[in-house]
Every structure is written in C-alpha cells, then in structure tokens.
C-alpha cells in the first residue's frame, strides 16, 4: 500500500488513477500512523510552495514526513511535492521546506527566451547511469512549473533544458523527486512510477 499525502493541495486523483492502472493500491491519508505503515509515501502538490508547507504544518505533518524520510521510508515527491523535499524555496519570499534533500528552489529565469511556466513535453537527459529511472533517458515527459531545484550534482538523476538546466528526477537514497507529472506523461511516465514501485519492492537503498 502506498500512502498519498492528503493535505488538500492540487489534484491527487490523477496520481491515484495512474497507480490504479499499475495495480498499486493507494490510500489518500493525513494520518501519521497510516503514513508510517505504508510501503511508500507519495507527496503530490500543485500550487504555491508556502501554501503547501502551511497546509502540511496545519496537519502537523512536517515532522512526520521528515522522520519517515530520514529513517528510510521510500518517498516520492511529484512536481511541487518534489520541491517541498528541499531545504527552502524562494517562491513569494523565502520559505523552509522539508530538508530531506540538499538544495533550494529558485524561479525559472524569464529573460532567457523561454516561456515561464515551462508547460509541455521536454526531453530528459540521464545524469546518473546506475539508476532505477534510467529508462527516462532521451524520453519526453510533461512539465508544468515556474520554479526549479538548484541542488548538488550527486542528487540529480536526470535533467531537461529550459533556459537553464532543470533537474527532472532527483534521488538521495530512499527519497525521490520528479519535477514532471508522471501521471500525465504517457507510457514513459507510467514507466517511472513502475520503476519507483520496483525500487520500493527491492527496498535496497545502500547504493544511494
């Protein structure tokens, strides 16, 4: 059972539908015990960083997610959910994140001849060959975002180019983030969710 964190942000139902399609059982929950008992925790998110952190704080989920992430619970943050995994974000002021990954979240530059938000399909370049998500290399996935992660190279699995180099998949041990929407990225997106499912089944995070 995967637990999708229920904190009233964005559309979690398409994510649930994608897991249904992959025959992964999910539950939408904000209950710490249910999150702790799940095989993996999925952190979705659409909207603004500060509002999402406020919503997590109101449900007293920040320490819960931090503890689960640090004690090896497989965790997948998607879109804004990935950005929440980092230390901080500059979206509408400086705000603290969950700090499960090193780095911060910055605005996509608007002066580089690209449109912001990045909205559409962009081509991934694999940066870490030994990864459960290596099949993303060269494939297009669907993005909708105005902010991006600035983080150490050793956390980056893949990137896309949008004026700047944008991390598209990040991972440190059990904590994974996807900036794109795997649930809206066709066969390729489903393959990344399936790869996460495999990673959870194997549950071996010894090699980062």
């Amino acid at each position: 059972m995967f637990a999708i964190v229920d904190y009233d942000t964005g559309n979690t139902r398409n994510l649930k539908k994608a897991f249904d399609y992959l025959e992964v059982a999910t539950t939408l929950t904000a209950d710490p015990a249910t999150l702790a008992a799940a095989d993996a925790v999925i952190l979705p998110g659409v909207g603004a960083f500060a509002a999402a952190m406020t919503a997590l704080n109101e449900r007293q989920l920040v320490p819960v997610l931090q503890r689960l992430g640090r004690t090896g619970k497989p965790m997948l943050g998607i879109c804004l959910g990935m950005q929440l995994l980092f230390e901080s974000s500059a979206e509408y002021g400086e705000h603290a994140g969950l700090g499960l990954l090193s780095g911060h979240v910055a605005a996509l530059p608007t002066n580089l001849g690209v449109k912001v938000p990045q909205m559409g399909w962009n081509q991934n370049q694999l940066q870490r060959s030994a990864s459960p998500f290596a099949s993303v290399d060269g494939a297009f996935t669907y993005f909708v975002h105005s902010y991006y992660a600035v983080c150490p190279r050793d956390e980056i699995v893949s990137t896309v180019e949008h004026g700047v180099t944008v991390p598209s998949i990040v991972q440190r041990a059990n904590v994974v983030g996807m900036q794109f929407h795997p649930e809206k990225s066709g066969r390729v997106g489903l393959a990344q969710l399936a790869a996460f499912k495999e990673m959870v089944s194997a549950n071996d995070f010894s090699s980062n």
């Binding site: 139902r13 398409n14 539908k17 994608a18 249904d20 399609y21 669907y142 649930e183 809206k184 990225s185 066709g186 066969r187 997106g189 489903l190």
Partner: peptide
C-alpha cells in the same frame, strides 16, 4: 478517460 489515458 483520465483513468485509462495518461496525457494532458
């Protein structure tokens, strides 16, 4: 549609 087709 969105339960079977995973695109925008």
């Amino acid at each position: 549609v969105s339960a079977q087709v995973f695109m925008p």
